[in-house]
């Protein structure tokens, strides 16, 4: 599995399509957090929603980086197309963890916030929720499910905007609402943990569905 992840990382890096989503993440984070001085939980709403969009984009990039014929070679070599899908998702997750750390620390460094353990913990939970949801949407909008690139892009755009903006739709919208309120961060940890679990379940479901659809289409 290590070799498989390494190959996909190398191929994605060579392809350079990862640059756009990372740049988007960096620019939005910089524009909205520099010199900010509000409560930490509020500014993490920016980090988390940017992470959601970037992770969706990045996941599509990673899953689509290889032509279907080349992907078939990879899956024969790896011993099954499911292993390739898992390797790609793990790669997206690893990059996403890096972005999560940046999304947590950058606002503290670039603005002037009073920060404490519970604020940071709430941030971790909110960002991780968006990380998993972003991967989930990205996997479902990849070529494995939507073969045409144009439709894939359109679908990803609509879903990634609709998911955080639809009132009450778990897990992202209620999590971000909690973060943007005035409640102390310590009170948010419990409900946020619940939304994180929901996001993990959603991601697992989307990956399983993608696998099911792509295998049927083979």
């Amino acid at each position: 599995m290590g070799a498989l992840i390494r190959y996909n990382l190398a191929a994605v890096v060579h392809g350079q399509r990862y640059v756009a989503p990372l740049l988007f993440f960096g620019i939005v984070l910089t524009v909205f957090t520099v010199n900010d001085s509000g409560p930490l939980a509020n500014i993490y709403v920016v980090s988390a929603s940017t992470l959601l969009v970037s992770m969706c984009w990045l996941t599509v990039t990673i899953l689509n980086h290889e032509d279907p014929v080349r992907r078939s070679i990879q899956s024969v070599t790896a011993g099954g197309s499911s292993r390739v899908l898992v390797a790609e998702v793990v790669l997206a997750l690893l990059i996403g963890v890096g972005l999560t750390v940046v999304g947590l620390i950058f606002p503290i460094l670039s603005g002037s916030h009073h920060w404490d353990g519970s604020g940071l913990a709430a941030g971790v939970l909110a960002l991780a929720t968006c990380l998993f949801t972003g991967i989930a949407i990205g996997v479902l909008c990849s070529r494995l499910v939507v073969p045409r690139t144009g439709y894939s892009l359109l679908l990803a755009l609509v879903v990634v905007i609709a998911v955080p903006l639809t009132p009450g739709l778990p897990p992202v919208n209620p999590a971000l609402r909690l973060m943007s309120g005035n409640r102390p961060a310590g009170e948010l940890l419990y409900p946020l943990s619940g939304y994180l679990v929901v996001s993990i379940v959603v991601a697992a479901g989307c990956i399983a569905l993608t696998r099911y659809i792509s295998v049927r289409r083979e």
């Binding site: 392809g15 014929v69 070679i73 024969v76």
Partner: peptide, 11 residues
């Protein structure tokens, strides 16, 4: 497995 064509877009 050697497919009939080898799409080569990689750097």
């Amino acid at each position: 497995y050697v497919p009939d064509r080898f799409p080569a877009f990689d750097a």
